[in-house]
Write a protein that binds this DNA or RNA. Structure first.
Length: 103
DNA sequence: GGATTGACTTACG
DNA sequence: GCGTAAGCCAATC
């Protein structure tokens, strides 16, 4: 297998999961962290996604935190989610109770 | 190689 | 629901 266990593998796994999030659903960082076999690396997921656009185009806007809040550095996220039919509770909170991605 | 930081999570008050 | 504290891990300085 690959000898790399750092960023490139992490990025590949994270983006692979993110790309599988169906339209109309959102996932949390912790959820993705578990899917890539790293239940404690929720923060790494966010850091990877911050650079994900440099590795390719992925629906990183479908990824929110456990409270359903949007990324503080990703203002366009709201528009992208609205375009996919995601319901918002507030300017910075999606209706995660309704749209949370079930594995 | 230690200290700091970060698109997080959970627990507690 | 919100602020604070603690926990975890990799990248960066």
């Amino acid at each position: 297998m690959s000898a790399k266990v750092l960023s490139e593998d992490l990025i590949y796994e994270v983006l692979s999961v993110v790309s599988e999030i169906p339209i109309g659903n959102v996932a949390t960082y912790g959820q993705i962290a578990q899917l890539i076999n790293r239940p404690k690396n929720a923060r790494l997921v966010g850091k990877v996604l911050s650079q994900a656009d440099l590795y390719g185009e992925y629906p990183c806007h479908r990824v929110v935190n456990a409270a359903g809040r949007l990324a503080p550095h990703f203002v366009q996220q709201k528009s992208l989610l609205l375009d996919e039919g995601i319901a918002f509770k507030d300017a910075c909170h999606v209706d995660i109770k309704q749209h949370k991605w079930t594995i």
